[in-house]
Amino acid sequence: MEGLTQAENRELEQRLQKRQVKEFMSMFNTMVDGCFVPCVDDFTSKALSGRETGCLTRCVAKNFAATGRLSERFAEQSAAMQQAQGQGR
């Protein structure tokens, strides 16, 4: 990280940790909202039906897998992009 002192690195690390908690909560919330919308549609009862619970569970599983796969692609692409920028300069 280009010429940061040790103290600066420590400060940065602390902020990163806060960011990770935030990212994680945001991922969780996105998952709840993104699965609630397509899966929960029956308001004739106040408890989730078996169908709704199953849909939510599969929705989380599939989106979790998709997030993992996309994160790998993201890491590859951004590495390639940085390399290309390095050569361009």
């Binding site: 969780f28 998952m31 609630f36 308001f43 004739t44 009862s45 569970t57």
Partner: peptide, 17 residues
């Protein structure tokens, strides 16, 4: 009912995740 289901969905999603 939607409010109750939204809370329950948090639990289901949390467990699944």
């Amino acid at each position: 009912r939607c409010a109750a289901k939204f809370f329950e969905a948090h639990t289901v999603v949390s467990t699944a995740l």
